[in-house]
Simulated assay, not measured.
Amino acid sequence: MVAPVPAPRYLVPIAGLFSGVLIVSLILSGKIAEVGGVTFTAAVIVFPLSYLFGDVLTEVYGYASARKVVWAGFAVQLVWIVSYWIAAALPPAPFWTHQQAFETVLGATPRIAVAGMGAYLVGEFLNAYVLARLKLALGGRFVGFRLIASTVVGQAVDSALFLTLAFAGTLPASELVRLGVSVWLLKVGWEVLALPLSLPLIAWLKRAEGVDAYDRGTDFNPFSLRG
């Protein structure tokens, strides 16, 4: 009788944290801040964590596992957005006078919501793809370099796609470019600063799970849920 392969112990908790970060990012994205002349959405506070978790998932468990979690995160965002729209449409109680504040703080326009979800999917899958391919090309070496390189590519496309879809035609092109570069630099800088956390976490997970996935023969089609 063949002994069953033990299931990963930490994959589900990481996936849960990943989805939680996405929801928090949606809530915070409605605020645009400026610090020291740098303009950015408040989602920058936590959104790069999704790339950190995405890096951990791809590096430890492989692209196929990361792909499933990315789609699960997309479903969680969809549930949040639809739930908000239903909640906002419900007539407020006569004594509850915060309907406008509720909509102002939590309400993302359909355009921004669609832009965010589209940019998320493209950016996350591109980040996982680049990381998995670099791991194969470099034989698993230079983990820090690979994490930064995949984030540079994924976050560049994510930021550019989101800002274009969400704000093109409503903000001057020069402002979009300035905002996009600022957000991209902040996200990449966040990834670099997080290396003292992400590198030991990846090494520990590989030991604890007894796995270090290499995506040889993996189907990199983002729409496939098979290995």
Rank of each mutant, 00 (worst) to 15 (best):
Y10Q: 14
Y61K: 09
Y120I: 01
I86V: 05
V177N: 02
A15V: 06
V24S: 10
I148E: 12
S50A: 15
F142P: 08
R141Y: 04
P13A: 00
W184Q: 03
A108L: 12
V157D: 09
Q77Y: 06
V69C: 02
A132R: 09
Y120H: 10
V114G: 00
A166Q: 06
F162S: 13
A72G: 06
T151H: 01
V2M: 07
F145P: 13
V70P: 01
V46L: 09
R226D: 04
S50K: 02
L176E: 09
A194E: 10
F125C: 10
R226I: 03
Y214F: 14
R133W: 00
Q100C: 03
A149Q: 08
A132S: 15
T39M: 10
L106I: 12
S182L: 08
E103G: 11
D55G: 12
G73Y: 10
A115M: 03
P110H: 06
F47Q: 04
G217S: 13
V5I: 15
A89R: 12
S150F: 08
E124I: 07
A128S: 15
D219V: 15
S224W: 08
G140C: 04
L161V: 12
S83D: 13
A87C: 04
G217M: 07
Y120S: 08
V69H: 01
L161C: 05
P8V: 12
I81P: 00
K68A: 02
V79T: 11
A213D: 10
V35G: 07
V177Y: 02
L193S: 08
E124W: 02
G37P: 03
F145E: 01
T39I: 09
L186T: 02
L199R: 09
